[in-house]
Computed example of a mutant assay.
Amino acid sequence: MSSHPLTVEPFRVAVADQELDRLARRLADTRWPDRETGSDQGPRLEQIRALCEHWATDYDWRRCEREINDLGSFRTVLDGVGVHFLHVRSSEPTALPLLLCHGWPGSILEFRHLIGALTDPVAHGGRAEDAFHVVVPSMPGFGFSDKPTATGWGVPRIADAWIELMVRLGYDAWGAQGGDWGSAVVEALSRKVPERLLGMHVNLPMVFPTAQEISEASPDEKRMLAKAQNYQTLLNGYFKEQSTRPQTIGYSLADSPSGLAAWIYTLFQDVTDSDGHPESVIDRDEILDDIMMYWLPNAGTSSARLYWETQREPSTPSGPNPVPAGFSVFPGEALQASRRWIERRYTNVLHYRQLDRGGHFAALEQPSVLTEEIRTTFRPLR
């Protein structure tokens, strides 16, 4: 790692052959549970068996490893923790720095199909004036970033680390984009350094309707509320477990590749716009790439602790948010917000759109759509 804590150094991902061989053996030796007795009990046995068989026999991690290294892979120390990140600079002289923030069970690879279009828009059918310099950090406890060894690494501290990272890279002001926990980090950035954050875009608005808003809901808002209620009632078991007992589930996530795959695949199944068949909207190898970002560095437990940390953090600042903001609401997203709700909380809404396709993993499901949503949001800020 870096010889000096302020150093930014290239980082080459190079997993030992023995680790990949060991994974294949563990997958081959999986003890499978009985078949499900109901359609709503989680991923079907045949789905996870097929995923793990492909993982053990045909999946190529070296392809993914090359992609990470070719993009621009780096490490630095932030607040005492080593952080892995991608940094891809545009050749366009007017490019705007943009911080891309992932969530759980996502990773830096969520943005793989956005990076080229954002940094080199002309080569991807866009305009030169829409170019960005892109920074994609892996949160502490995730991917190839280090794991915190003490409590306290929740959303506010992650936001502080990303502020330090952007300044260290030479960016005095920048934009930020995120979904899932990335949305929460972007929101924290907008509260901590509104003078540095040129603008923000999220595809999971941090908007939680009040009792009055619920009672006054329009038909479309009632649809959003019903979708959120369905998520809270049927789909968020992982959230409750990781918020209360991350170490308990962590033993299984660390020891069983099939268990980790099923735990993560459940989210791809439940909150993609795929009618329960995530491979129809995200390439199966890309789902496995994401799972590998948890298996290889043994990050299942350390990433789950973010939920526990957040339950113990003080409430965030309230009041109108002044940072220019854009919002994209995808139909498969479990938590949605209307323009009316958003405009009561953000004083400068640059963009709001409800899309007709896509879900929680918008950057993987609909990368070209999300790219254009980001471009549209930031155009008035250049």
Rank of each mutant, 00 (worst) to 15 (best):
L6K: 04
E9S: 14
P10S: 02
P10Y: 04
P10F: 05
V13G: 02
V15Y: 13
L23V: 00
R26C: 09
D29A: 15
D34F: 11
S39E: 09
R49G: 06
L51A: 07
A56I: 03
A56T: 03
D58V: 03
Y59D: 02
D60R: 14
R62L: 10
R63V: 02
I68M: 10
L71G: 10
S73Y: 09
R75N: 03
T76E: 02
G80M: 07
G80Q: 02
G82N: 08
F85L: 04
F85V: 02
V88W: 08
E92D: 08
P93T: 05
P93S: 10
P97Q: 03
H102M: 13
W104L: 08
S107F: 07
I108P: 00
L109G: 07
L109M: 06
R112Q: 12
A117I: 04
L118T: 10
T119S: 05
P121Y: 12
A123R: 13
E129H: 01
D130E: 13
D130R: 01
F132K: 00
V135N: 06
V135K: 00
M139F: 10
P140R: 15
G143D: 11
D146K: 05
P156L: 01
P156F: 08
R157K: 13
R157E: 07
R157L: 12
I163D: 15
E164Q: 12
E164R: 11
M166S: 11
L169D: 14
D172S: 07
A176M: 10
G182F: 01
G182A: 06
S183R: 04
A184S: 07
V186N: 02
E187D: 13
R191Q: 12
K192H: 00
K192A: 01
P194Q: 08
L204N: 08
E216L: 05
D220Q: 13
N230F: 04
Y231D: 04
Y231S: 02
T233D: 13
G237R: 03
F239H: 13
K240T: 15
R245K: 15
S252Y: 00
L260N: 03
A261W: 11
A262Y: 06
T266N: 14
F268D: 07
D270N: 11
S280Q: 08
D285G: 09
I287D: 04
M292A: 15
W295G: 03
N298A: 15
A299Q: 08
A299S: 14
A304I: 07
A304K: 11
L306G: 02
L306R: 04
P314V: 06
P314W: 05
T316L: 13
P324W: 06
G326Y: 09
R339S: 14
E343N: 05
R344G: 11
Q354R: 12
L355A: 12
R357E: 10
G358V: 04
F361L: 07
F361Q: 07
L364K: 10
E365N: 15
Q366N: 03
S368N: 08
S368P: 00
E372H: 14
I374V: 10
T376M: 00
F378K: 10
